[in-house]
């Protein structure tokens, strides 16, 4: 197993190299440059601009810039944000917990609702519960996140007044020092009455919005995996043994169906990051996604490059985790190597 993990980690290196190049080039393909954005509408003289570009090292040929970038990464220096002059790595990790909290809540909702919905659809195949689940899943999958998020805000926040419009906590009522930057943990540890509830209250709507697409995908995959598994010989054996339908479905069938579903859940983590960009922007959620959007708007090259690289590493680590989990769920993979 250790060798398996080591091999997977080794395979990350060329992928990461590719990502640094892609991030480096894409951000420079955008029209404009950091200096133009920094100096604002009035602009500066040509000489001053050249001076500033030289300060940032942007006057060098691209290949040289890339070389410096790589060299710095290898020595652990991911550069400084042009906008804030703080190290990119600090900027990233101070915002990461907010995104993780949101993504984790969204994934929890997606799995807790998506898997049972898929199971029900599979058992009731061709009947109304199946049609309802599949209809809702298709709608959810096709719904653009920014539009869906706005609709939910209009309904639940503006019209019904059930949830806050944005933010992570009611700032007027509660204040405590950020320790972990995971608002749920910090609020819990602050011991202030109602603080934790307020965080959950703020988390629900963005998490629901972010969970929609993964939930739809998970429900559909669970359904098709269950349908396939339910036709297997060992399901007939389980019934022939006299086991209850509940046990046959929830133990014998689900365990096998989960092999496929776990893979799909892992793949959804990538699209979850993409969804986080939109969700965080809509709900003014101070996480990685919102930070990336702002960095792009400022043409903050080091921040965009660093952010993309870290996100890629995170997604790949999650996929590695899924691979390990996969071996744990599927005994045939475990000693296949």
């Amino acid at each position: 197993m250790l060798k398996f993990i080591f091999n997977k980690l080794l395979m990350l290196i060329p992928t990461l190299l590719g990502i640094t190049l892609a991030a480096f080039l894409f951000v420079r393909l955008l029209p404009g440059d950091p200096v133009t954005v920094l100096t604002g509408e009035r602009g500066v003289s040509v000489e001053r601009k050249a001076e500033l570009m030289a300060q940032l090292g942007l006057d060098q040929p691209l290949i040289v810039q890339y070389g410096y970038y790589l060299k710095n990464i290898l020595s652990g220096d991911f550069g400084q944000s042009i906008a804030t002059h703080k190290p990119v790595i600090d900027e990233f990790f101070s915002r990461l917990p907010a995104t993780l909290e949101l993504a984790f809540a969204a994934m929890l909702i997606a799995v807790l609702l998506g898997v049972p919905a898929g199971i029900i659809a599979a058992i009731k195949r061709g009947h109304w519960p199946d049609h309802v689940v599949m209809g809702v899943a298709l709608t959810g999958y096709s719904m653009p996140i920014f539009w869906w998020g706005l609709l939910l805000i209009i309904l639940f926040s503006t019209t019904l007044g059930w949830t806050p419009v944005s933010g992570r906590i009611d700032l007027i009522k509660y204040y405590f020092e950020a320790e972990t930057n995971f608002m749920l943990i910090d609020a819990w540890r602050s011991g202030q009455a109602g603080a934790f509830g307020s965080v959950v209250h703020h988390l629900i709507l963005p998490a629901v919005v972010l969970s929609t697409i993964p939930m739809a995908v998970i429900a559909r995959q669970t359904r098709s995996a269950m349908l396939e598994v339910l036709g297997e010989d060992y399901i007939r054996t389980a019934y022939a043994k006299g086991l209850s339908p509940t046990r046959v479905i929830m133990v014998h069938a689900l365990r096998n169906a989960l092999i496929t579903v776990v893979t799909v859940i892992g793949l959804q983590v990538g699209s979850l990051m993409a969804g986080a960009v939109l969700t965080e922007t809509i709900f003014a959620w101070p996480g990685i996604g919102k930070w990336m959007i702002e960095a792009i708007a400022r043409r903050d090259y080091p921040a965009v490059q660093g952010g993309l690289l870290f996100i890629a590493v995170a997604v790949m680590l999650v996929n590695l985790l899924v691979d390990v989990l996969y071996g744990w769920i599927n005994p045939r993979v475990r000693d296949g190597k």
Partner: peptide, 8 residues
């Protein structure tokens, strides 16, 4: 071979 559940 297929009548036994591969996961248990």
């Amino acid at each position: 071979m297929t009548s036994l559940n591969p996961c248990f």
